[in-house]
Structures are given as structure tokens and as C-alpha cells.
Design a binder for these strands. Structure first.
Length: 477
DNA sequence: ATTAGGG
DNA sequence: CCCTAAT
């Protein structure tokens, strides 16, 4: 996994110089963005908690940011930061390091910019990022983090010595961080994360990415860009909600960041988001981009077997199935976003519901008509190409029945399976297997266990598909 | 464009 | 999952 991730990262890094920084952050945030939006959409008890937590931060802030507080908070942050970096190095971040240096050269102006605007921004961001993405983006963040960090250390000692104005920012951030780490609530954590990000970015004068992420609308982004200090329409909600606004102002007043770095969204972002919105809205077609960069996992993978006119198919799906699959999609999405953010190339776990659906489809249409099954039963899931269905079926056969010498082995396998299939499902699969010998049956019947021989258990409409058997016969002979 | 098989 | 060959 880790090793797998590296190549992507490296490629990305080399491909884009400046964009790299932003890119590396956004993909991950996207996932959270949805959640945040949910939260925003329907304020619930979470909000209360969030508010409470953040109020603490505010209070601290308003306490004039005493030096003690500040230093304490900072220490905390710093520690975390170091830890993060260390871990990175441990994972063979040498390559990353190189890349970072390489990129640094090309980004001197950028660095200077940030630097000038805010000497502390580097360190600030550094630990901030580390805190926020302890695991998921450990590989990515360090790049940016170290990069900026270097920049900050270039001129001033890594210390936070000469930055009085940034004290506010730091203390605030670290407070938030602390609270986040304290709060075990995932949702809350995410909220805080976003918030922190937001704050930080505004400090650094490059809020675009984050905003973008949170509110995938171009207008929003622009709004944000235009009004640096003013609360932005949507984000303002977050900010005001958490009273972080004040901190932002402090920072800003102190340093006067240059909001002139409008290099933010990058058409890539716009594209990305337009595409994403399209994708999430309806898993329809989205050809916007080739598959070069690490794609957003939550969206469908274009791939070759693209079914052409699946649009009207939705109606064919019974609502039961439709809803099921849709909710599945969501589940999968969130699941993936939480777990596999990097190897996200492909791989979508098959849920039990999906498996059942697949089995149903096979029962109805027979083996081999995967496009049909896909269109009828999996129309709502843009991923899951017919080939995928076939593969899955193959795997199901392999795991649940066929080619097992005796029931013992099968049972054992089923038991030891990581994600054991419910017996009924297994049974069905076996039944189907007896009549649809997919992987090819060289020797007679597959399941020596419960092959009822003459009985065609296909209650759901006989296999309208004789080809499979014929083909098999042919091949066998 | 789909499917079967193999990796 | 991905890729390729065969339909």
C-alpha cells in the first residue's frame, strides 16, 4: 500500500510544480467535504459540541493569548509535528525529500511569497498539517510541510521568535488541534479539521484550495478570493460558528497577507469539481479527464467497457434495488474515503447487498450476460463494469463452492474467509454454479456436495441463456 | 462492443 | 482489478 502510493505521489510531484502543493491536499479533503456539507446542511447535536469546543478556543484567544498559553500550545503542536516528520522519514521519505527539494527550487517565488507574508506560516502549516492528517496523508503532507518549513527556517530560525502577530494564529490553531485530538468524535474531528484548514489557509493567503474543497463551487471560490478578510458566504458560517474569525482577523491585521496570489483554483480544480459534482450528482458519464492522476475514489472509473446508454436504465431498476444500490454507493464512498485514500485507483469492496444483487441477476439472466446484469441491476453504480461483475462471480464461485473436494474444505474456507458470506447466499451461489459452470467445468459436476443432479433450482426464470452451456460443451469436447 | 480467460 | 484475445 505504502509502496504503491509512492509512485503516484512522485509522479504527481514531478508533473506539477506549483500545483503539487494544492493538489496534494485537496484530494483528501474532498472526501471530508461531503461530510462537512452534511453537517452544514443539517445542524444537529454535533454543532453544539463543535461550538462548545471551539468556544474554548475562542476564549483562549480572547485571553489576549498569553504567552504561556501560546507557547504551551505551540509546544504541543511542535511535538506532533516532529513526530509526523519522523514517521515520514521512517517510511523512506527520502524520495519525497528529494522531490521536495526539487520542487522547492522551482517554487522559490512561491516560497518567498509566503515567507514574506508570514514567516511563521511555514511552521504553522507544518504542524497543522501533521496534526490533521496523521495517517492518511502522512506521505503527502510532509512534502508541503517540510517544504514550507524549510522556507521558514531559511530566514528565521525555526523558532517562532520574531513573529508576534502569528502568535494568535498559532495558539488558535494549536488549540484547535488539541481539542481535536481530545475529541474522539469523528465528525467533530472533521469539522475541526476543516476549520483549522480554513483558518490556516486564510492566514497564508491561499485559501482557495480549502475553500474549494469545502464548497465545490466556483462562485464560492471566487468570492473567497475577492474578500480576504470578510467572511465568505458559506465559509463564514463555519468561521462565525466557531468564532475563529477573530483569530483570522488578528493574523491578517498583523501581517497583511498578500491576497494577490490568485493562483489558487487552477483550472484543474475547477475541472475537478465540476466533474465531481457531476459524478456525485449522478454517476453518469464524466469523461472530463483521463486517468493519469490519482483519481478521486468516490467517482466512477471511466474504464473501457463504458456502457453507452445506461441512462434510461435507472427506471428499469426496481426502486428497492435502486435505493439499495444508491445507499450502497454512499456507504462505499464514505468507507473508501476513510480508508483507502491513496491506493484509491480502483478497488471497491463488494458489499453483501451487491453480491446478492449480482447473484439475483445471474439467476435471472444467466451467466455471461454481464452487460445486461450490469445495466439492469447495477445501473446506479457507475463503477462495477460488466467485467467486474463477471470477475466477482468468478470469485464467488471459487470461494463458495466449485472445485472444492468436500464440504469440509468449503466450510473451512468459508469460515476462515475474511468476510464470510451468509449461508443462504452461498447456497444460491452454489446452485447457480451447478447450472452455470462458469470457470469452465472440465470434470463433470462441480459441487460433489449438493448437486441435485436433475433438479434445476432456477426458480427465477430459467436461464434464458443457453450459450454458456453450449460454449462450455464445445470447449470441453 | 462484449465476453472469456489469465495475470 | 487489469489486460488481452477472440467473437
Amino acid at each position: 500500500m505504502k509502496t504503491d502510493r509512492k509512485p503516484h505521489l512522485i509522479k504527481k510531484l514531478s508533473d506539477m510544480k506549483r500545483q503539487r502543493v494544492d493538489e496534494s491536499i485537496v484530494p483528501g479533503l474532498e472526501d471530508e467535504a461531503t461530510e462537512v456539507e452534511h453537517l452544514l446542511a443539517e445542524p444537529k447535536s454535533e454543532h453544539v459540541s463543535v461550538d462548545g469546543v471551539l468556544c474554548l478556543g475562542k476564549e483562549n484567544l480572547e485571553k489576549h493569548l498569553k504567552m504561556e498559553d501560546f507557547s504551551c500550545a505551540f509546544d504541543y503542536g511542535w511535538k506532533i509535528n516532529c513526530g509526523g516528520l519522523d514517521s515520514i522519514h521512517g517510511q523512506g521519505g527520502d524520495d519525497l525529500k528529494l522531490e521536495v527539494l526539487d520542487g522547492l527550487l522551482d517554487e522559490v517565488d512561491e516560497v518567498d511569497d509566503i515567507h514574506a507574508a508570514h514567516d511563521l506560516s511555514g511552521a504553522c502549516e507544518d504542524f497543522l498539517l501533521d496534526i490533521e492528517f496523521p495517517e492518511k496523508f502522512a506521505e503527502l503532507e510532509p512534502c508541503e510541510g517540510s517544504n514550507l518549513h524549510n522556507s521558514s527556517s531559511e530566514s528565521h530560525s525555526p523558532g517562532f521568535s520574531g513573529s508576534s502577530n502569528s502568535a494568535g494564529g498559532i495558539s488558535e490553531s494549536s488549540i484547535a488541534a488539541v481539542q481535536e485530538s481530545n475529541g474522539r468524535n469523528g465528525v467533530l474531528g472533521k469539522m475541526v479539521n476543516c476549520d483549522v484548514h480554513q483558518t490556516f489557509w486564510s492566514k497564508c493567503g491561499c485559501q482557495a484550495p480549502v475553500m474549494d474543497t469545502i464548497h465545490p463551487t466556483i462562485e464560492n471560490v471566487q468570492d473567497l478570493d475577492q474578500s480576504d478578510d470578510d467572511e465568505k458566504p458559506l465559509v463564514s458560517f463555519i468561521l462565525s460558528n466557531k468564532k475563529v474569525k477573530s483569530s483570522v482577523k488578528v493574523t491578517r491585521g498583523g501581517t497583511l497577507l498578500r491576497q494577490k496570489r490568485l493562483r489558487k483554483p487552477t483550472r484543474r480544480y475547477i475541472e475537478e469539481f465540476s466533474r465531481n459534482s457531476t459524478a456525485s450528482g449522478k454517476n453518469k458519464r464524466l469523461k472530463v479527464r483521463s486517468q493519469e492522476l490519482p483519481q478521486d475514489p468516490s467517482e466512477s472509473r471511466p474504464r473501457r467497457g463504458r456502457p453507452r446508454k445506461i441512462v434510461p436504465q435507472l427506471e428499469l431498476e426496481s426502486d428497492y434495488e435502486l435505493s439499495a444500490s444508491e445507499s450502497e454507493d454512499e456507504l462505499e464512498k464514505s468507507k473508501r474515503s476513510k480508508t483507502a485514500c491513496d491506493r484509491r485507483k480502483h478497488q471497491r469492496m463488494w458489499t453483501l447487498a451487491e453480491v446478492i444483487k449480482l447473484v439475483d441477476g445471474i439467476a435471472q439472466y444467466g451467466v455471461g450476460r454481464w452487460t445486461d446484469i450490469k445495466r439492469l441491476l447495477f445501473a446506479s453504480s457507475a463503477y462495477r463494469t460488466p467485467v467486474d461483475l463477471r470477475d466477482k462471480w468468478r470469485n464467488l464461485l471459487r470461494s463458495s463452492s466449485a472445485l472444492k473436494h468436500n464440504r469440509r474444505e468449503v466450510d473451512n474456507d468459508l469460515k476462515h474467509a475474511v468476510r464470510p458470506l451468509p449461508k443462504p447466499v452461498v447456497r444460491r451461489i452454489r446452485e447457480l454454479a451447478t447450472i452455470h459452470p462458469y470457470p469452465r467445468v472440465r470434470s463433470p459436476k462441480i459441487s460433489p456436495v449438493d448437486a441435485p443432479s436433475s433438479k434445476h433450482p432456477t426458480t427465477k426464470g430459467a436461464p434464458v441463456y443457453p450459450h454458456a452451456r453450449n460454449l462450455r460443451r464445445k470447449k470441453c469436447s
